[in-house]
Amino acid sequence: MEEKCVDQRVKQETKEILAKYPQEKDQLIMVLNEVQEKYGFIPKQAQIVISETLSIPMAEIYGVITFYSRFTLAPKGKYNISICLGTACYVKGSQKLLDRAKERLKIEPGQVTPDGKFSIDDVRCVGACGLAPVFMVNDEVYGNATVKEFDEIIDQYMNM
């Protein structure tokens, strides 16, 4: 019953988002970006509303969502750790940070820890190449990070 209420709310809110755009197919990615922003992922119910409103088949919407790395189908962890794997960061050892994150949290990129607290993303260039290697926890950027510093920062979030 509670689930249904959530569904109704998502549907209503998606309709509100859609109302801001022309009802044309080419608006799909713009709409998805806003839905992603709002929920941290793109709920199924939102997809159904978008499909009906913009007359785009569900399979096509799913195809678009899974094509673009910014769009996700499930909520991320409370603390989403994005590790930059752009070339500049890679050259400065960001792979080691990613390996460490996987080892500590026992999840792969794109997954969420069972308690919902952490998730990992391997991202392409967050644009802070001057600070390489870079990782982010939600919107907070950490630059010039060693594995040791990385560990300390993760510890902080673990205790939060």
Binding site: D26, Q27, L28, S69, R70
Partner: peptide
């Protein structure tokens, strides 16, 4: 929305068209 291939101009056009 994060796809390297969209830097290619015709892929970019597809993406503007919402695909």
């Amino acid at each position: 929305a994060g796809a390297f291939v969209c830097g290619e101009e015709t892929a970019l056009l597809e993406s503007i068209e919402g695909k």
